[in-house]
Simulated scan of single mutants.
Amino acid sequence: MNLLDFYRQYPDESSCEEALRRFRERHDLFCSRCGGLRLSWNPSHRSWTCMDCKHEMTLRSGTVMQGSNLPIRDWFAAMYLLTATRRAISSKEIQRQLGRKRYQPVWEMVHKLRDVMGKRDARYNLHGDVEIDEGFFSTETPEAQKNCPLKRGRGSQRKTSVLVMAESSFPDTPSDKKRSTPKIVGHIKMEVIDDLKASTETPRIKQATDGKANATTDGSSTYASLEKDGAVASHKAVVMDDKKKVGKVLPWVHIAISNAKRSILDTYHDIKAEFLQLYLNEFCYKFNRRYFGFRLFERLELCACTYRAEFKHRIY
């Protein structure tokens, strides 16, 4: 389905409202007040009424669209544009496609969708063999440090630390295709972190895995207590004096970091550190569903109907 097909399928707001109603009713709609499943659709009010507690729910209640004044058709189109390509897509590009004059509402809408992408991915734990390392992404210099001398390396004001984890294992049947690594990748996770201390990373690794994972890391002391603290079932630390060895021991972590940097920084001239996690949410969400094809739009629609965003209105 291309963009023209999308607009043929959803020609106006009423078609989008009807599609949203049918979609929510197919996916276990329940009363937000009492949890009841007996809901009756009221066409004149465009809402459901709970037959048990008489609570009324609108089409947008309990979704990422709740409280938004933008048409549902704009939300659908933004979801389609976000999932139609693997590359990152900017809010300005979506604004142009929607024909919107104001940038701010579109920017907030897209960030809310990225927020719920992260919430959906947080439900899944990594398992099996897991690679773990950190990446350092270029971001804007914080306002308070703009007059300070610019540091170099990972401690630079323009670098934000990200904990990166990837399911990585050897296939049962080796592939004949020429690949950069013989390993295959499953799901990945990326989380912005304040520092590289064990007290910061270990709880996040423990939350991201199923507790039975077999972790492979570099020789950093940050990971020394992963197995002892119960974050993983086993831990293999590989001391790497040669940087070329990193790509062989932790291939998919570094492929993911490289692809995320290229995707994000090729699309945006500069991003604030406070928004980096949202862009990483989008990258990981699409990477983890890279084989979904056009079904990815429907999966994001389910995600948008299931979660409310924590991202709040901001004015710049």
Rank of each mutant, 00 (worst) to 15 (best):
L4G: 06
K54S: 15
R114M: 15
D5W: 04
L196M: 14
K312A: 15
A144I: 12
S168T: 14
L113D: 04
G35T: 02
H55L: 09
R102L: 13
C50K: 07
K228L: 13
M165N: 05
I264Q: 01
T306C: 09
L163Q: 02
R120Q: 15
L276S: 06
G36S: 07
F136V: 05
G35N: 06
R114S: 07
R87H: 10
A273R: 07
A213M: 02
R290Y: 03
L29F: 00
F30Q: 14
Y279K: 04
H235L: 15
G36K: 04
L98I: 06
N281M: 07
G247Y: 09
H254M: 02
L302W: 12
A144F: 08
F137S: 03
E131A: 07
T267R: 06
T306R: 13
S220R: 12
D195N: 15
P171H: 01
C16G: 06
A88V: 02
H254L: 03
Y279E: 04
E25N: 02
P71C: 02
V249N: 10
Q207C: 11
R204M: 13
F23A: 11
C16R: 03
Q95Y: 03
N42S: 11
R46S: 09
D218G: 10
A233E: 09
I132V: 10
R120A: 15
A237N: 02
E274R: 10
V106A: 02
V246H: 08
H313L: 12
R289I: 03
L4T: 11
V116P: 00
I193P: 01
S68K: 08
L278M: 05
P182V: 00
N259D: 12
Y7H: 13
E191F: 11
I315G: 07
T217M: 07
S221G: 10
L81I: 11
K243T: 12
